[in-house]
Computed example of a mutant assay.
Amino acid sequence: MKFTFFAALFALVNTALYAQEQINVVLPATPFNKEETKNMLAPGTATMKGFVMKKKRNARNTYLGIVVALFPCTPYFNEWYELQKKNKKGKTLAVMSPEAYSYRILTKASDTDGSFEFRDLKPGKYYLQTTVRQGQMEEMWNRVGTATSTGYNIYGQAVTSFEKPIYEDFKLFYETTDLVKTFVEITSEGQVVNVKL
């Protein structure tokens, strides 16, 4: 996941530079507190259960390998989130340090119903984020030609003629992608929190 994140980041920066746009990459000024973050992610007894909701309501849509990321809301993370919100015109890109980004928990959502679960969490505030990728198959028809039929009388003369279109069926697969995020707070040990993304 680290490689995927930073590969996407570098691709975004390089694409912007290629388009002759200036992107200002910023990191939080708050120092990253490794021990505080490790303590927030230490084992607890709370559970977070959730569902990733389909963004396109067609019942035939299927989920595509959705991974949900959980981050503890440390002062460092909170500043990063606020920096993200300031990026109104796409001129600033807020990023975390590689070390800070590594302190997260990942879980894969079910391909069937989008359900996911985080176990052994401590009380605290958490940030959840995922990219909802859905695929859909549509059967379509494409006109590939025309068949002409001609009617003749008993003398062999053409008296009627009509055309009939020829269609060929094919399947079209397409994908939709939506970024979704939310904050969730666990207030006590042993608590079970339900979440919808």
Rank of each mutant, 00 (worst) to 15 (best):
L70D: 04
E35W: 10
L179Q: 13
M137P: 00
Q191R: 03
T176A: 10
Q22V: 06
T45G: 01
F32N: 03
E99W: 10
G190Q: 09
S115I: 08
T160K: 08
T92G: 04
S102L: 07
F6C: 08
L128D: 08
T130Y: 14
V25S: 06
K49S: 11
T150R: 13
L179S: 14
K34W: 03
P98Y: 12
M48K: 03
F162N: 02
L70W: 00
K55R: 06
R133G: 02
Y126R: 04
T148Q: 15
V95N: 07
N153I: 07
P43L: 05
T112R: 14
F116G: 03
I105H: 11
M140I: 05
Y167C: 09
A100K: 14
G44L: 01
Y174I: 00
K122Q: 08
D169S: 13
Y174M: 01
L70S: 01
K91E: 11
E21P: 00
I166D: 12
G50K: 11
A19P: 02
E79H: 08
F170C: 03
N61D: 02
A59V: 06
P123G: 09
I66L: 06
I166F: 04
L64C: 07
T107W: 06
N14G: 09
E99F: 02
T130V: 01
A46R: 07
S110Q: 14
L27Q: 12
L17Q: 07
K122H: 09
C73W: 14
G135V: 03
F6K: 15
M1S: 06
A59K: 14
R60I: 09
P43Q: 08
S188K: 15
V159D: 05
S102C: 13
K196C: 05
I154N: 08
E35F: 01
K88M: 07
K89A: 06
N78G: 10
V25W: 11
F173L: 01
K108C: 11
Y63H: 08
I186V: 00
T177N: 15
K125S: 12
K85G: 05
F5D: 03
R57W: 13
M96Q: 10
F162M: 00
Y155F: 03
A29I: 03
E138S: 05
T37E: 09
T107A: 07
Y167G: 01
A7G: 09
Q129D: 10
V13R: 11
L179R: 15
Y81W: 10
A29H: 10
E139P: 08
M140Y: 15
R133M: 08
L27H: 14
G156W: 08
I154S: 15
V195G: 12
Q134G: 01
E189L: 00
R119S: 10
V95D: 10
N78L: 15
S161E: 11
L27P: 01
G44M: 00
L172C: 00
A147G: 12
N14Y: 13
K164W: 07
G145Y: 15
E163W: 13
T160I: 03
A8H: 09
T112K: 14
P98M: 03
E138H: 03
T4M: 04
L128V: 02
T74Y: 11
T45V: 04
G50D: 14
A100M: 04
F71Y: 05
Y18G: 13
Q129S: 12
F77L: 01
